[in-house]
Structures are given as C-alpha cells and as structure tokens.
Write a protein that binds this DNA or RNA. Structure first.
Lengths: 120, 120
DNA sequence: TTGCATAGGGATAAATTTATCCCTATTGTA
DNA sequence: TACAATAGGGATAAATTTATCCCTATGCAA
C-alpha cells in the first residue's frame, strides 16, 4: 500500500469523516450495496466508469474502516458479497442528503461547473 | 488552470455535489466563513495546516461555484471578505451533519483509521 | 479446446491535487 | 530603513490518487 509522507490531520469530526469517505467511488459503493448490489461484479456493472481495480481497492478500504463487511462463499466460481455494517448504515441518511442536495440543485450546479471548466 | 484530460462525469446528484465539495479544505472554509471568519488572513489562521496558496485557490473555486461571494474593499492594506451566498447556506445543514457524524464516532474512527495506516 | 464468468492483486504509468518558493504593492511601525 | 500585515498569483516540485495492463485459478458451455 502507499506510504503516506505527509501526516494526516484528524482534528475534528470533519477530518474523520473525510478520511473514510474520500475516494472517488466510495459513497456510490455504499449506496449501491445498500440498494442490494452486493457482489463485486454487480457493483462493477453499476459503475462502469470505474475500473475493477479501483473498486476492489476502495471496497477494501471501506471494509478496513468497518463500513462494510465481506463474505466469501467457498464455491466455484467464487462468490463474494459485501454488506453494510450497522456502522455503515448510519451513513445512509448523510449520503441520501448529499444526493438530494445535488439533485435538487442539478440545473444550477451543471451551469456553474461547466462555466468553470470551459471559461475563456 | 489545470486542463482536465479525463472528462468529468456528472450523472447524478452525488457527482454534482462532489464536484463542488471535493477539495481538501473546502468544507472547512465554508464552515469557518459561516462562523464569521471572513477574511483570507483570518481563514488562514484558522487553518494553519493549509498553505495560503491552496486556500486562495479553493476560495476561488467556491466563488466560481457560487457558494461564496467575494467583496473587495478599496483600501490599503487590502481588505477582502468572503460570505456564504444563499446557495452556499443551503449546504450548512449537510456540513453540520457530516461533522456531527464524525464527532459522534470519533473514537471508533480514530481506531480504524490508525489501524489501517499502521497495519503490519 | 477456446472463451467467459467469478474474484483479486502486482507493477507501473498517468492524472490530479497540494505543497513550496518566490515576486508584486502599499501603509504603518519599530 | 527594514520589516510586518494585507491579498494574490506564477512556476514548479512533490504527493496522492486513479488508470492501465497483465497474471492467477476453476468450472461450465459452445
């Protein structure tokens, strides 16, 4: 794993939650797992823009942070399932709120984001 | 400014909010501005781990995304003030919720984060 | 027998974000 | 006169995160 050179600072609640939720796909992974897409291959199909590799890595981090649990079924072809832990479930209202804010302000957000990206 | 090579994908609300809130210091900037630390130098003092440079850059992005407004006073030495826009204020409940979750789970989060960082 | 589905990881390159360092300008103070 | 405070930005290096490519293994279906 990558060895950090600049120490993390974990001063407040915002630092702490950032540490477990930062990661391009983590929030989406939590959300889809909650919606019932529990197997890596299902998640990969739900998030085709992400490579299988990153999803694996981020799932592993979510697991290390105890937000999801992993079950490996001893069968062939292999079967693995992720589930939210109780701890992970406590994030659902937050994720839902984030998504809702984004959806409610979709038009405006698209406008300002595009303007910034394509400004002269 | 940096010219993006991989196109953004802005499919859902989660993508949209991520686009404006990602950035190591953005959430904190919004929070402190709301608490009354409106001048760049004040913000810098509140967030000493960040360099002045990054704060400027992230403030600029927040402004471009219409979450904060900037007022320049024509005086010397220069005085600048940032304020949340009405739009920016709608993020406060979300930020508050994020911080609260982090605070409430502080102990557990520190444990899992440290474990992951220092694992054998 | 070739190919697909399953799941996972190593090695390395590329993209993106932050960090550092330096320079501009003005007024007041030691 | 030298330095601090104010605000801001260019250039470049470093850190960090993602993307790509390749390899392992097994059993089933065409």
């Amino acid at each position: 794993m990558y060895e950090r050179k600049i120490p993390l600072n974990l001063n407040c609640g915002l630092d702490l939650i950032a540490e477990v939720l930062y990661g391009k796909w983590k929030i989406r992974l939590l959300w889809f797992i909650n919606e019932g897409y529990k197997r890596p291959s299902e998640l990969q199909r739900k998030i085709p823009e992400a490579s299988r590799r990153v999803l694996n890595i981020q799932l592993k981090e979510l697991e290390a942070h105890e937000l999801v649990s992993k079950t490996i079924y001893a069968q062939v072809p292999p079967k693995v399932e992720y589930n939210l832990t109780e701890f992970g479930e406590t994030l659902l209202p937050i994720i839902s709120m984030l998504g809702k804010w984004g959806d409610e302000n979709e038009e405006r957000l698209r406008a300002v984001i595009v303007k910034q990206t394509t400004s002269p």
